[in-house]
């Protein structure tokens, strides 16, 4: 019995190691290209380890006023502002839906759930933002479309429901106003769920290329992911855009492209070990949500 068991263990471990390698190798290749000499890429193609080490690509990107640094700032600002606003609006909203004394909570909850089932689609959404709210080509449009999400509201509502009534009741008896109770008592008790949602929303804003692609023309407002996409694709509609042409003409092409990608992924990978357990917790919260 013993030996056969350890053989099956060996097979399982080998399988996972191969799969893990498949997950990591693409990132290693991109990293390696970014640290290679442009010349060596041209001659020998991509490789998992740099054939000839060079920091040229990073020197170029980080030295001076390149669009990439600018996109970095825009993305950081949108991520922070978007996440904070999302948390404030959604958590207050979810809290009122979790309180039994709020009589109309069922109707409003239904309104929230229905958004999960039906939506107007891309075009009305686009027309609303650009024509009626006049948000096209503003920094705010990178944030505004994603301030409340039904799923997040429902997850938070369910978490708030789990807070014992006695705690809130006793705060009320002590003369605390409802808003005060929420800020001073409920929010600190809910840090696990709030941290998780903050992380998900933060990653969403960081990874968002779509909003900029459809609603941003001013190159001062490009997000990192959109810039990354434009550099790679050099799509027809971006030609004639001086910024992108500048990039195409002046970059140590391949290596700098990949270095930009590394810089876009870097913060997530570096933060990942610390944030991971919140992600796992959040996924679990979402799963038992129903």
């Amino acid at each position: 019995m013993r030996p056969s068991l350890s053989i099956s263990k060996l097979v399982v471990n080998a399988g996972f190691m191969i799969y893990s390698a498949l997950c990591i190798i693409p990132m290693l290749v991109v990293l390696s290209i970014s640290f290679s000499k442009e010349q060596s890429i041209f001659q020998g193609g991509y490789s998992i380890l740099p054939r000839a080490f060079s920091l040229k690509a990073y020197e170029y990107i980080l030295g001076g006023n390149t669009p990439i640094l600018h996109a970095y700032l825009v993305t950081i600002a949108a991520t922070i502002a978007g996440t904070v606003l999302h948390l404030i609006i959604s958590s207050m909203f979810a809290y009122t839906l979790s309180r039994n004394e709020v009589k109309y909570r069922h109707i409003v909850s239904f309104l929230v759930v229905f958004c999960l089932l039906f939506n107007g689609g891309l075009v009305p959404w686009y027309i609303l933002l650009s024509k009626y709210l006049h948000l096209k080509d503003t920094f705010f449009v990178l944030i505004f479309p994603y301030l409340v999400s039904s799923v997040n509201v429902l997850i938070m509502r369910n978490f708030f429901k789990g807070i014992p009534d006695e705690i809130i009741e006793s705060a009320r008896i002590d003369g605390s106003g409802e808003f005060n109770t929420f800020v001073k008592l409920v929010v600190p008790l809910s840090t696990p769920v709030l941290a998780t949602i903050a992380l998900f929303v933060g990653v969403f804003f960081w990874n968002d290329w779509f909003t900029a692609a459809i609603l941003i023309e001013n190159n001062k407002l490009y997000t990192l992911q959109f810039l990354l996409q434009s550099i790679m694709n050099n799509i027809a509609y971006l030609q004639g855009n001086s910024l992108v042409e500048d990039i195409a003409a002046n970059l140590p092409d391949e290596t700098a492209r990949m270095a930009t990608c590394v810089l876009a992924v870097g913060p997530i990978v570096i933060a990942y070990p610390y944030l991971q357990r919140y992600f796992v917790k959040g996924l679990t919260l979402g799963a038992v949500k129903s």
């Binding site: 609006i89 909203f93 004394e101 409003v108 939506n119 107007g120």
Partner: peptide
């Protein structure tokens, strides 16, 4: 429950503007 409804207001207005108006759209 005015405090609760005031807290609800930004979120409710938001889903009406960003979800329901496009539905009518």
């Amino acid at each position: 429950n005015r405090v609760f409804y005031l807290m609800m207001l930004p979120g409710l207005l938001y889903i009406i503007i960003m979800y329901y108006i496009p539905m009518a759209g």
